[in-house]
Design a protein around this nucleic acid. Structure first.
Lengths: 223, 223
DNA sequence: TAACTACCAGAGCGCCGCTCTCGTTTCGAT
DNA sequence: ATCGAAACGAGAGCGGCGCTCTGGTAGTTA
């Protein structure tokens, strides 16, 4: 009962979010649409920020699941196909849910600090991407191009942590490239979504494909 | 007189923005601090959005100028040094003005659409970066690594436009790499600023340096 | 039956962006 | 010097916001 109502609230909030964006989200409007009064919402979520937190967690899980499904649909030994599929899944999800994407990867909502509960779902997407590269490395398919700089020594502890959690047996250099590639990938999606490509790039799908290919090659996938 | 007061308003607004972020910006609070009543502000800026537009233009010009100065301080034929200087200038400015950076490169403010006046200052930073690569190409120093995919044919018109404006005589492939590198660079800055590197990367300056080097190599600068 | 709990409605507080009116000041043209 | 227009700031007010507090009601347990 209570869980159902909480779900119904987040559903309505998600609809409002999709239409108006995070900052335009009005708790009162949501309550109106549900035939309630605004104060009733507070029985379920103690504040607007907690509602946002729930949406953020849902968002990370949604994009994570989309990426996982895209990955699962590929033959596991075709790492390049998995790389493409997951990369495009991220972009497709972002284009389909721009405001939710902005909530996850855009400027943080002011006065809002992400609670601990969000970090686990947040990693979900990255874990898949790292898994692809990890698998490619373990099957000996990975061939990172030379001529690129190695990471600093100060990166070693971070690399150790990442390696331990998602990329077993990968050298620091590949992990560093993967971090760079990951941030670059999302950066390109954000650029497109946030309008930085307006009046500059017309065929954005093609450019993203080019970027995805390049980043894949950079971390060691075949061209 | 009028211009002075408008400047004073934007100064106060900038201070508030730096402290509270864009969404927390209150026109009334700004008016209070200036000893005015909120309605008086509307004599100078017809709406809160117009005030934001002024701030956005200022922000693009500020980061653009910082990058231009960093570039000018380098010997013009040391393209790698210029690449580093400009790249770090972007990151340094972003770290020093996180909320303004978010206003420029973060999620767009809901209901707000960027007017024409912003696009010219917005390109300023990118123009410098492109100029570095353009100079490197014209002196024959540019050596883009092979093994990376070429851009799609659909990119040709966009490339022509970019070439005409800021990167004369550069082949489409380099221009495409430059676009990717540009978005990737900002993506890495955004990742750091927006908290995506929390609990993951400790020495973020070193990682950014690594990324900057890699992207420079990718577009054709020496390693 | 009585006590307790979960729940929702309503009023209200202080904030917000924005509009409108009204008295004052400033300033250029006559 | 005078007059009229424009610019300006103060104040009140509108509707909306997040959030709190108080009460009343339905359902459950003892």
């Amino acid at each position: 009962m209570r869980a159902e109502l909480m779900g119904e609230i987040t559903d309505v909030v998600r609809r409002h979010l999709a239409r108006d964006g995070a900052a335009g989200l009005s708790l009162r409007a949501v309550a109106r649409e549900m035939g309630m009064v605004s104060s009733a919402i507070y029985r379920y979520y103690p504040s607007r920020d907690d509602l946002l937190t729930a949406l953020i967690i849902d968002g990370y899980n949604a994009v994570g699941e989309a990426v996982e499904r895209a990955d699962a649909a590929c033959p596991r030994d075709d790492h390049l196909a998995r790389w493409f599929a997951t990369g495009h899944a991220i972009r497709d999800w972002a284009l389909a849910h721009p405001h939710e994407y902005a909530l996850l990867y855009g400027s943080p909502v002011p006065g809002y600090r992400a609670p601990e509960d969000t970090i686990a779902p947040a990693t979900r997407t990255a874990v898949v991407l790292c898994g692809v590269i990890g698998d490619a490395c373990q099957t000996g398919t990975l061939d990172p191009p030379s001529g690129f700089p190695p990471p600093a020594e100060s990166f070693a502890p971070d690399a150790a942590l990442i390696r331990e959690q998602v990329m077993p047996d990968l050298p620091d250099a590949v992990i560093a490239r993967m971090v760079t590639a990951w941030a670059s990938l999302l950066g390109n999606v954000s650029f497109e979504l946030f309008g930085q490509f307006n009046n500059v790039i017309t065929d954005r799908a093609a450019l993203f494909d080019h970027t995805l290919r390049s980043l894949g090659r950079y971390v060691g996938l075949p061209a």
